[in-house]
Every structure is written in C-alpha cells, then in structure tokens.
Simulated assay, not measured.
Amino acid sequence: MIIKKNNQNQNRNGLTSLVCDHDQKGMVTDVERGEIICSPCGQVMTEGISSDSRSTHTLDGFLSNSQTGPKSSLTIYDKGLNTNIGARNIDFAGRRISSKTILKFKSMRVWDSRSKSKASGRNLISALVLLDGVKQKLGLSNAIAEHVAFTYRKASTLGLIRGRGTAEVMAASVYAACRENGIPWSLDEVANTLNITKKRLSSCYRILIDRLDIKPELANPLDCLSKFCSVLEVKEKTKRCAFDILMQANSKRILSGSKPAVVCAGALYIACIANNENIPQTRIAEKTLVSSPSIRKALSVLNKALSVV
C-alpha cells in the first residue's frame, strides 16, 4: 500500500480525501456508504458524499431527484400542468405586497376559479374520477388508463357526450381501449362495473367506433383463457389441454363467428372432462358469465370436430 503521509485535503464541499499514487481508474465509488475507495490498496480516499450527489449517478436517482414536478398525464383534469394562486398576500421573502398588487392577484384568482368552473370542465373532472374507480376495479394499467382518458377527451371534443351520460361514454371508452389493446374484458363485465345496461354500452360503443375511427383488434378466445383459469382455479394440465383445443379450433376455423368467451368456456369444460377435473358446468357458466346452453352448444361442436372426449 502506497499512501503519501499528511496528504489529506478538504475540498469546498467539506469532503475529506486522501491522495494515492495509484491510477484514478482504479477508484471505486460505494454509493451506499458514500465513499470512494482505491481498489488496488483498499484505502478510503473520500468519504462523506451526500445522498443527493450519489443518487444522480444513476438514471433512477436522477429522475427521483428531478425538480420539475410530476409528469403530465391525461388522467388528470389539467394534465398535471395546474397553477395555484395562493391566498396569502405575501411575496417570496415573506413581505406583504402592495395594495395595487393585491387587487391584481384578487382579479387573477377570480378568473382562475371561473375558468375551472365551466360545465365541460366539471364533466371532465367527474369522468376522470370515475375512470380512477374503474381502473382500480378492473385492474387496468397506467398505459390503458391513459388510452381511455385520450379516447374520452377526443369524444368530448367532438361533442359526443351531449345527450349521453358520463358513465355511458366512459364505459364505451374503457371497452374500446381494452379491445384495441387485446385485454379480454367483455361488455357485461364493463357494464356491471359502471352500473349501466349492456344495451346502452353497446350503442355508445358503436358511436365511438364510427366517429373516432377506432379499429379494434379481432377478439381471440385465447385472450380469455388465463382469466377463466384463474377464476375457476383449474390445474395447469387442464389449462394446457384447453390451450391445445383452442389452437386446433383456431387453425380449423371452428366457431369463428361465435363469442370468444363462449368458445373459451366450451374448450375449458372439455379440458376439465378430459383431465377428470370435477368442475360443474353451472359453475363455469357463473364464473365466465356465459349461459349453460351456449357452453353445451360449443362443447358439442368442438367435440364433434376434434373428438377430444
């Protein structure tokens, strides 16, 4: 170990450091302890690095220490770019401002409150509050919530909300965003979540499809399989058997015009029978929101075409 004696110095930040004869490339920074260590000799060269200076060495640390505030989001009424005019008539130094400036700020507060109290603004606020509840109930990701908010704002701009309830347009926006991103939420599930009828939801959804030029993905029964297996708590072997049945059905275009939930429920019931897993048909119908006659019809067609059971 080669260390020069009495070569301690203190920089402007108050950090105590030593001078070593080894190359600077051998220095290692310990972000947890706040120290810089010479790897050839093991000497602690600098210690007492503050947490703020350490955290900026990584991307996560830089973003966490950002002073620009939260990122803008469509799920927030003002997209996170709001301005608040304080009620206290003092400046940044705590001194009372002049009477002329107080009158200006009072006028600014009045116009700020009036701009936020428009009917369209109140409607958007209530819709985004509703979206936050739907996001929690359906387990939607932040990206899907942003997509839903974008669709609703676009519908509001085109005047599609007039004459329709906020819950109807929000439900149609949620269903449209789920269809575009391949998320298997059915009309019944979305309608029940927002406490509206399926007829009103489907009517509003068709209007959004027509006016906003939305091109949803074609529904695939495989998208429903994971959700149904999780709800029914079936075995992994049964899940794989149902997956093989659906793959064969898709390749042979069996029940291509039927509802994806019906086809998936029928394939899952066949897989349960083939693997001796005792799950009643009524329980599958209850958990998948599919009627028992529809499951029996899908079972008959799939079994006749594939001869599974």
Rank of each mutant, 00 (worst) to 15 (best):
S64Q: 11
Q8M: 07
G163F: 04
S203T: 13
S126H: 06
P221W: 05
C224I: 03
E286M: 09
L212V: 08
S66P: 04
S141I: 02
V19Q: 08
E168Q: 09
F228R: 03
C38W: 02
S203C: 02
L103S: 15
H57Y: 15
D188G: 03
M27S: 03
S115T: 11
T56Q: 12
C264H: 03
F105Q: 11
C204Q: 09
K104H: 08
R253N: 08
V44I: 10
G34T: 04
I3L: 15
S256G: 06
E217C: 07
P40S: 08
T68K: 13
S251D: 08
Y269A: 07
I2M: 12
S99P: 01
A267C: 01
N9R: 08
K252Y: 02
T288R: 01
A149M: 01
S115R: 13
A143V: 14
R164Q: 06
S72G: 12
E286G: 07
L158R: 14
K215A: 13
D91V: 05
S115P: 01
P260V: 02
S72T: 12
S115M: 12
K235E: 10
K259M: 06
N220H: 06
I102H: 05
R54C: 13
C224M: 03
Q67N: 14
I295H: 10
K287D: 04
G165Q: 05
V190I: 13
T58I: 09
K259Q: 05
I214V: 06
S53D: 14
S230W: 00
D210Y: 06
G121N: 15
S99T: 14
V262Y: 00
A267N: 01
P70N: 12
L218N: 12
